[in-house]
């Protein structure tokens, strides 16, 4: 897990739901590129084309509300999003993001779309050039560990391997 994560900002508002992050009709596949190609389609049909690897989403409260579909954080991750910062997250999205290895942080950050910001997961803070440092909620260590391992699947595999030795 790279930290701090430095990237360009895409801004979204409150209550961004899983139906706009990845509409239900695209769920009938295991192909990550399909999810990526339709990321955020419900709110910005061109998002998947505009987004660059390493970009960061900064959003308002209740990001990822709605369905349990893990395709939502997968779509963002495979579209190139390096991290999601939001004032708050819906709980299933929060778990899913960590499980698929998409870093996130709860923080109320003042910034503009296109700003290059620095998200430090280990310190639990976000630095916006010219605006200052914003304190966020640092993830508990066991969740940082899952992220560091690359998600829950890799984390579980690591534990299995350690048990074998």
């Amino acid at each position: 897990m790279e930290t701090p994560i430095i990237g360009r900002v895409w801004k979204f508002g409150n209550d961004i739901d899983t139906d706009v992050i990845i509409p239900g009709k695209y769920l009938r596949t295991k192909d990550m590129q399909v999810f990526a190609a339709h990321a955020m389609e419900g709110i910005d049909p061109e998002f998947a084309e505009k987004v660059k690897p390493g970009d960061i989403i900064v959003a308002g409260s209740n990001f990822g509300c709605g369905s349990s579909r893990e395709q939502a954080p997968l779509a963002l991750k495979h579209a190139g999003i390096a991290c999601v910062v939001a004032k708050s997250f819906a709980r299933i999205f929060f778990r899913n993001a960590i499980n698929v290895g998409l870093p996130l942080m709860e923080a109320d950050v003042e910034c503009q779309e296109g700003d290059e910001i620095r998200v430090d997961l280990l310190k639990g803070e976000v630095i916006v050039p010219g605006k200052g440092t914003f304190r966020g909620n640092k993830l508990p260590d066991f969740l940082l560990q899952i992220l560091a391992d690359g998600g829950l699947v890799a984390h579980r595999k690591k534990i299995q391997d350690e048990q074998k030795e």
């Binding site: 579909r69 899913n96 998600g151």
Partner: peptide
Amino acid sequence: ADSHSCTYGAFGAFATGVGATD
């Protein structure tokens, strides 16, 4: 693995939804 799993709370269970990897 469905957000509406909270339905089973109607029977006094603690029931909740999670994603696929969980």
